[in-house]
């Protein structure tokens, strides 16, 4: 009994040595220094997140107070430089939501089918070539996507626009710089992420599961769509959420192709996203306008946080 008590006491002492930050206290001076250096490096991340959050809240909230939450979030008129300045960001928020949703709806099926092709259909050689291409695609800087969109996509979309609105007297022609172009660029940009993560999810599906389906007389396509994809669902959802994150946060590429007016998000309207509003206006904004842009940044930040929380939730429930 007594021995146990002393043993416990000993363990207690030992445990006290491990603090919140360190597993154990260092003994030598050099080790101490290294430990502190590593800790500092690690803290850089946490500090950055904290500073960004704090900064966005401090700078983004005042505009809401001054303008009023209703006049800001639920009003559609954004004219910060007018005499009677108005700061309604509803259309801007909607554009980001609708643009992202459309890009995901277009991009995810393409990416998923690409991943299926890579895993189930392509020969090893072909798959290797395609994988390299997908990786290259993800490495291309977003401004290059924007430039190509401007030079290649906009004229094509303009042609489509001309054909569709041939007889319209009210339509304002965008020259191809509109929501549709932005969505197409975003679609291309999320393809690599969604493809490669879906691909690894599909590769994780046990071979015997596929074999069981085939052994029941199912065809390869039936097996892919009814067994393999459902089995890879958690990974595919992760891929989609990451794609959403990428699309919501993208600024540069779409600022070049989306036209830039604040408008209701319809395919052939020039539009402004949360991101492109900041990119386009921060350079000259002052006073309340500048503060309103920080509020936009805050809204964007909240979107991204929500996306990440969703992701964490999925990953955790997938572990169970």
């Amino acid at each position: 009994m007594r021995a146990e008590v002393t043993l416990r006491g000993h363990m207690y002492l030992k445990q006290r040595k491990s603090t919140f930050m360190y597993k154990r206290n260092c003994v030598h001076a050099v080790e101490c220094a290294v430990q502190i250096f590593f800790t500092a490096c690690a803290f850089l991340t946490i500090v950055t997140v904290a500073v960004i959050t704090g900064y966005l809240i401090v700078n983004g909230v005042p505009a809401i107070w001054k303008i009023g939450i209703r006049d800001m979030l639920f009003s559609t008129v954004w004219s910060p430089t007018a005499k009677q300045a108005q700061y309604g960001i509803l259309y801007i928020v909607l554009t980001s939501l609708v643009g992202t949703a459309m890009a995901v709806m277009l991009g995810v099926p393409i990416a998923l089918l690409t991943a299926v092709y890579l895993v189930e259909i392509a020969s090893d050689k072909m798959a290797a070539v395609m994988k390299t291409a997908v990786e290259l695609l993800s490495g291309i800087p977003s401004v290059v996507y924007g430039m190509l969109g401007l030079m290649v996509l906009n004229p094509l979309v303009y042609r489509l626009e001309l054909r569709l609105y041939r007889d319209s007297v009210t339509h304002q022609f965008t020259g191809g710089a509109n929501l549709l172009s932005a969505v197409l660029v975003l679609t291309l940009m999320i393809l690599p992420t969604v493809t490669s993560i879906s691909e690894s999810a599909l590769r994780e599906v046990p071979a015997e599961l596929k074999a069981s389906s085939l052994a029941l007389g199912a065809s390869q396509m039936q097996t892919i769509f009814k067994v393999v994809i459902p089995a890879a669902k958690p990974g595919i959802i992760t891929a989609v959420v990451l794609g959403v994150g990428r699309a919501v946060g993208e600024a540069l590429a779409i600022s070049l192709v989306s036209g830039g007016c604040v408008n209701i998000p319809l395919p052939f309207y020039p539009v402004r996203f949360l991101t492109t509003a900041i990119v386009g206006e921060m350079g000259y904004a002052a006073g309340l306008h500048r503060q309103a842009l920080f509020t936009i940044g805050l809204v964007l930040f909240i979107f991204i946080i929500l996306v990440n929380l969703t992701l964490n939730h999925i990953v955790r429930s997938g572990d169970k």
């Binding site: 046990p206 015997e208 599961l209 074999a211 069981s212 389906s213 052994a215 459902p230 089995a231």
Partner: peptide
Amino acid sequence: VGMVFQQPNPFPM
């Protein structure tokens, strides 16, 4: 000609 495998492997449904 049906088949049963080494690892029990129900479909995820």
